[in-house]
Design a protein around this nucleic acid. Sequence first.
DNA 1: GTCTATAAGCAGATAGAC
DNA 2: GTCTATCTGCTTATAGAC
Lengths: 203, 203
Amino acid sequence: MVKTKVDSEELILDAARKVFTRKGMTGARMQEIADEAGINKALLHYYFRNKKQLFDAIFDDVFPRFIPALIQILNSDNSIEEKLSHFVSHYIDEFSHKAYIPVFILNEIHQNPERLASMSMAIEGMKTSRFMVQISEGIETGLYHPIKPAHLLSNLISLSVFPLISQPLLTRVFQMDDKEYMQFLEEKKKLIPELILESIKRN
Amino acid sequence: MVKTKVDSEELILDAARKVFTRKGMTGARMQEIADEAGINKALLHYYFRNKKQLFDAIFDDVFPRFIPALIQILNSDNSIEEKLSHFVSHYIDEFSHKAYIPVFILNEIHQNPERLASMSMAIEGMKTSRFMVQISEGIETGLYHPIKPAHLLSNLISLSVFPLISQPLLTRVFQMDDKEYMQFLEEKKKLIPELILESIKRN
DNA sequence: GTCTATAAGCAGATAGAC
DNA sequence: GTCTATCTGCTTATAGAC
């Protein structure tokens, strides 16, 4: 039995995600979310008692949404080289037009570190992924230099995320237009895996 | 002639910087700034007509404050190796207890990209620094691989900033206490310059 | 469940005394 | 220059009809 009528709760969540991730908790307005959802403010309070509850519902869901695909890449049967390449490409493609998402997450975490609770489980999967096991093995067999997991993962994420969230700055300073910036990101997809590999490979 | 009386305008600016950089434009409250400054709201409006003008005064000043020291490092007579090391160390020391500053800047730029205007001049100095000239020379003489300035600088900044702004996440995921995190940053001071050098040096 | 109307509280901004 | 008191408008939240 097909429901033709759309679910208001879903409409609200979609609208709230859009507004909150762009404007942040303090910058978002319940009226704007209602307008975006095509309903009225009262209905927001009917489904989610107040602004904070609605925000929490969004925040707790934003991060976990993106993690499974990344974990899957790290847990595949591919080589380390392929995983690095897939990971970076996926990451960049996912956020190249949504850089406001990582900025939103970083900002809200700094506003209220307790919000981390909903995120750390999602990240746990990266720490314990097959990729990290492969790295450990490479180190044990002498193929790679010893490197702490924290350093390896932070390098990988740093190099992937920052070019995205600093886009406004980068394009201005280096006078790139949209096309040049997208080209820049394509180059990153090759350069980042190379850089990470060079950093761990023994000569 | 020593003025014993403190300058109210300075008190306000100091307080506003503190509150705005932590809470952001939309999260900050004029009342909180007044309290922090030890004066009342009316005086805020006496010196700065409205919230936006006060915010602009702060924002336009935050970024330029940190740039000259970095430019100076890049323009010194030191070797590339020393410059990289000094740059990263200075960066990390400067922001290890103020990671909310780069988060604030990133967030506000994404809220309103026009704000970039006050920043790009400050960054211009990095692009045209003696460091970048040394890199160009290294490339011309075949000492280094060819690399676009945008990639080199973005790698350097990415690796330096992200470990700072992602501190809450990192420390949680890798279960570091404060001491271990500071140790982690100390290691970064060595690892980042090494990584950057490896990426450009010919074997 | 969904709406209109309205209450209640808050934050930015101003008036005016000192 | 600095304060207290107050206003105005906006934003969240609720009441109550349908």
